[in-house]
């Protein structure tokens, strides 16, 4: 199974610079077109209907404003151990 991930974008901190979208290998980050944040920027959005995000974190590394928190699904060692018993 491919690693699955997701990101959370702090929309109020986002300045809409697009560098995260540029860095995303899955091209699943887009700038909002329907709303702006309190600073007047179009924030970045994760648009991932096919669950393609791998949690690679390249977007977060490229983000100049530390707006992105990255999560990745990893095998759960404890649960697997329990299941084995």
């Amino acid at each position: 199974m491919a690693a699955k991930g997701r990101i959370e974008i702090n929309e109020e901190r986002c300045k809409g610079c697009t560098l995260c979208a540029l860095a995303c290998p899955q091209t699943i980050i887009e700038m909002a077109t329907d709303r702006v944040n309190a600073k007047g920027y179009y924030p970045a959005l994760l648009v991932d209907p096919d669950v393609k995000c791998t949690g690679c974190a390249l977007c977060a590394v490229a983000c100049p404003d530390v707006c992105i928190t990255v999560y990745r699904q990893v095998p759960s060692k404890t649960r697997r151990a329990e299941a084995a018993v």
């Binding site: 300045k15 974190a57 977060a60 404003d65 990893v74 697997r80």
Partner: peptide
């Protein structure tokens, strides 16, 4: 065991960086 997964934070703000917005341009 493949379905036994948990979510882990792989990237977040470092502690040495204050949790504030910067004045830098986009």
């Amino acid at each position: 065991s493949a379905v036994m997964v948990e979510e882990k934070v792989v990237y977040e703000r470092p502690e040495s960086l204050a949790d504030v917005a910067t004045h830098y341009c986009p």
